[in-house]
């Protein structure tokens, strides 16, 4: 009798894990664009809002702290940090495999690294300081690096560089990005679902502040950093054909 109860408890547990605790796999793809043109490093000239030419030589940023909202009103938090780098194809596809199977209507994440992870000492993986997204003299991660060449820039070599970071007020550059999924995305354990995001670099250079390369070609500490952060807060959109 006793053993029967034990066996049925075990069976029920196994079943419920199978039914309710099932993880699905979701892949987020980050496509980098300048307006409607695909980003190509170094060799292709693009134009900013003011018609000034520029090329991009480096584009890297952190995304972390994902929240997925399900159609039943659940909020699933995924506490992971990823470093996306234009120069590394694989980094532009991130895999989330701790998401319970379900129907999702929207999600959000932050561009940056939260204060907890900024204050956690030596770390490895995406947050390893060897990734060169780290300020040594003023401890903290650089959230986004955009570098390139612009003939209008007045800096030596006509370069521009925006290294944006800072998790403390008044120069907090963490920005929350919310994405509404036009139609529900159903995830399950059997196949990997994909969501494609369009990341428009032009948005870093405009709205609310239009950046003129001849006036602001370098941001490497908190001076002007929030200005760029306000700009980049709208650079992520769902890829149009996904809507």
């Amino acid at each position: 009798m006793r053993s029967k109860i034990v066996i049925s408890i075990i069976l029920v547990t196994i079943l419920s894990i199978k039914l309710f605790g099932q993880y699905s796999t979701l892949q987020l793809n980050f496509g980098h664009y300048i307006g409607d043109q695909k980003l190509v490093l170094d060799s292709v000239m693009f134009k900013n809002e003011l018609g000034q030419n520029f090329t991009v030589s480096k584009f890297k940023y952190y995304v972390s702290n994902f929240h997925f909202k399900s159609s039943s009103g659940k909020d699933i938090f995924i506490n992971e940090t990823f470093l996306i780098n234009e120069d590394e194809e694989e980094s532009k596809k991130i895999i989330l495999n701790k998401l319970p199977a379900g129907n999702y209507t929207s999600f959000d994440f932050i561009l940056g690294v939260d204060s907890l992870h900024n204050c956690s000492g030596a770390q490895s993986g995406a947050l390893d300081p060897v990734n060169a997204m780290f300020w040594a003299w003023n401890t903290g991660y650089i959230f986004l690096k955009l570098e390139g060449f612009a003939p209008n820039s007045l800096s030596p070599g006509k370069f521009f560089e925006y290294h944006i970071g800072g998790y403390k007020q008044p120069s907090n550059c963490i920005r929350k990005i919310s994405i509404a999924l036009g139609k529900e995305v159903k995830t399950d354990a059997a196949i990997t679902k994909e969501i494609k995001l369009k990341v428009n670099i032009l948005e870093i250079l405009k709205t609310p502040t239009t950046i003129d390369f001849s006036k602001l070609s370098s941001v490497t500490d908190h001076k002007n950093a929030t200005l760029v952060a306000d700009n980049y807060s709208d650079m992520f959109k769902l890829m149009p054909n996904e809507k």
């Binding site: 204050c119 956690s120 000492g121 030596a122 300081p129 060897v130 780290f134 040594a136 003299w137 003023n138 401890t139 903290g140």
Partner: peptide, 27 residues
């Protein structure tokens, strides 16, 4: 400027006037 004892050594290692080395290369 440095808020973590663990992260402090990155300063001297990478400072061009102290040890002038990259963390990557030390590894």
């Amino acid at each position: 400027g440095v808020t973590s004892l663990e992260l402090q050594p990155i300063n001297p290692i990478t400072s061009p006037i102290e040890m002038d080395e990259s963390l990557e290369n030390v590894i």
